[in-house]
Amino acid sequence: MQQRIDPTTVVGWGVDADPANDPTYPMRDVSRDSKGGLDWQRPTLQPEQVEVLRSTEHNRRPAVYGTSTPPSGLSGAIRRRAFRKSEGKWSHWLMLLAADRINVIEGIGDDLMHGRVPNIPGEMGIRSEMQHNMPGLIRKVAVTGAVLAVIAALVRSSPHSSTRNRY
C-alpha cells in the first residue's frame, strides 16, 4: 500500500469545495426551463446544400449541420435506410457500423480509381512502430505470416481443392 498524501500539501486543495454542489451539475434548471417545447427563438437556418440525414426523433432539422462527407455509394444507401429507424433501435446503429465498413472498401476503390495505391502501412503509422516498437512489429509480422500460412495450408488440403486437382 502506498503512503497517503496529506491533502493540505496539495496546491489549490479545497478551493472549489462547495457544500451547495449537491446535487451536482448537470441538473435541470427549472428557472430557465421554458416548458413550452420547441419555443425558443431559433438561429437562422443553414441552407441545405448537401444531403443531410436526419434522426427520426427530430421533428425539425436543427439549424446548422456539418457538410463533411455526404452519403454516397452503397454505404450511403445503407445509411439512408438506417435513418428510417429511430435512435433507440440497435438496427439503426448496426446498419451504420456496417455502412462504415463498406465505406472503407469504397475508399480504397476510390483511391485506385484516381490512380492512387493507398499506402496502408504508412496510414497505420508503421514508421512510428519501427521507430518505437520494432520487436512488437516483428512479432506482429511473424504472427500474421503464421496465420496466413495456416490458412493457406488448410485451403490447400481441403476436399474441394483435392477434388479440383483430380480433374
Binding site: S34, L38, W40, R42, P43, R61, P62, A63
Partner: peptide, 23 residues
C-alpha cells in the same frame, strides 16, 4: 447555439440546434 432549451440551462454539451443526425 446558446438559444435552445438546453443551452439556456447551461447544458452547452447538449445543444438541440447543432446535430441533425442524433438527438
Amino acid at each position: 447555439c446558446g438559444k435552445c432549451h438546453f443551452c439556456q440551462q447551461g447544458l452547452f454539451g447538449n445543444c438541440h440546434e447543432a446535430n441533425p443526425e442524433a438527438t
